[in-house]
Amino acid sequence: MTEYLRMSGVYWGITAMDLTGSLTRMDRESILEFMRHCQHDCGGIGASQGHDPHLLYTLSAVQILTLFDNLNTIDLEKVVEYIRSLQQKDGSFAGDKWGEVDTRFSFCAVATLALLGRLDAIRMEEAVTFVLSCMNFDGGFGCRPGSESHAGQVYCCVGFLTIVGRLHLVNADLLGWWLCERQLPSGGLNGRPEKLPDVCYSWWVLASLRMLGRLCWIDSKRLRTFILACQDEETGGFADRPGDVVDLFHTLFGLAGLSLLGETQLKPVNPVLCLPEETIQRLGLHLQLLN
């Protein structure tokens, strides 16, 4: 029932495994075999066989193949062509040929191209202009121009600007304040004012603060306690909140959050691409964060 997002599921699972140092326990060959069936003629990659191509799963696929150091499993030139074809006149990106525009897709586009070393393939100035047109009164970012700020979207836009070397265009003090106000008395972080805390936001908010060089603006100890309270004793996975059902998505972002907080049992994670830092270094990718 989850094959409509399986590619991302695989990415969440194997990245979580790699952060805990257990990637070798995954069946690499069968994952690569699965991936060979997901690329379409247009170059885009679907969530699983029989599902339509989309930037979300194209990024997940490239992240997985980067982790496995096996990028040539798919046709990379076609991936680049696919991403290029989805850039709109105003610089934004549609998620697929059906035209839904969202700053999440701007992030997917440049994150994928950065991993492939092909940032030159798109019209960068226009892409930057579009993302900036989604900046709001609180310094945050939304899905489209005029959309309310949301921590997930903030992560995408701050990540986008980091990848393309324009982080100075963010009002870091203002946005940092909005982000650190996401921390609630429980220690957990929410994604917007007046919302409940959620483990996945420990990643979206924390990674954004890290990119802005302002990680110390929240209380790390309290956040760590909250994330650990979301771990299920029976299965070891993480849920959105203490006592809820666990899933792969929150397990990865729980672990990634703990890694950013300096958990020594985990590999250090890269705050921009949510892959182990060692993987990013292997690629020789240099992402300049604020200090």
């Binding site: 003090d173 940092g176 304040w177 650190c180 106000e181 921390q183 008395p185 302002r214 110390c216 603006w217 929240i218 209380d219 309290r222």
Partner: peptide, 14 residues
């Protein structure tokens, strides 16, 4: 508001 100690100290510094 001890949760935001880091923020207030930086703002004061600024």
């Amino acid at each position: 508001d001890p949760l935001r100690t880091g923020y207030y100290k930086d703002l004061r510094s600024k």
